[in-house]
Amino acid sequence: MAAFLFFFLLTTFHSRIAAQQRPLNISLGSSLTPTGNSSSWLSPSGIFALGFYQQRNGYAVGIFLAGIPQKTAVWTANRDSPIFSSNVSLILSTDGRLILQQPEGQDITVVDPSEPISSASMLDSGNFVLYDSVKRIIWQSFEHPTNSLLPGQRLAADQELISSASETDDSKGIFRLKMQTDGHLVQYPVGTTDVAENSYWSSGTNGDGTKKRRLYESRE
């Protein structure tokens, strides 16, 4: 029930900002630090942000609900090892990458599109986008979900959500929810193959994916 109410309130937030404000243009060379004056890039309404949030004994990088006291992450970077110390920087580098710069000199690439980045924006939908020089989106967080889906976001065929380790740890947990190419939404343990005997739960929509693709193709 609590999860439903949370989703309802989030959907209500989205309806209230339907008349979208102009998003902040994040230019190349812009940077964030966990403890400085600039620790996140806000969406126009201030509901969502991309940046640093506290996690266990350090800081993680992700997209979170900034409009409520408890920063609730909906997308987390580098989930195999998401915790960083306070002396790292998140940089939209001049060579067109989103990187975590560490004092030891071992930078971590968060996003490295196949095309050069010109700028970025954090949208009111909760989608973080990277643009090329003509403002065409070349990468967006909505196409790379981690453990959550937001209103308007979809889980595409062959994509999966991976649970968090716990409520206070957004590293990868032990379950994954996969949207199979046949239209079947199935929950498996992490590290197992996509076979029926490994599944914990399934949607019972096996075959619907093929039917929907055929219907879509017939309309074109």
Rank of each mutant, 00 (worst) to 15 (best):
I91L: 11
G105C: 06
P82R: 10
D124W: 10
T146N: 06
W139S: 01
D112Y: 07
D80Q: 14
S85C: 12
L90P: 01
W75M: 07
F84A: 07
S148N: 12
S93P: 01
S86A: 14
V74W: 02
I117M: 07
S93H: 13
S85L: 09
K135V: 02
S141M: 10
G96Q: 12
T76K: 01
V111E: 06
F142S: 02
L130Y: 04
L98C: 08
Q101T: 08
L98Q: 09
G126E: 03
E115M: 12
S114C: 04
E104I: 12
V129Q: 00
L92P: 07
S141G: 07
P116W: 08
L92Q: 08
S119Y: 05
P103S: 11
H144N: 13
S86E: 15
D124N: 04
M122P: 09
V88K: 11
V110M: 12
G105E: 05
W75C: 04
V134I: 08
D95N: 14
T109W: 14
S118R: 01
W139V: 02
D132A: 11
D95T: 15
G105N: 05
S89I: 08
S89A: 14
F128G: 03
I138F: 04
Q101E: 14
A120L: 10
V110T: 06
L123G: 00
D107H: 05
S86G: 03
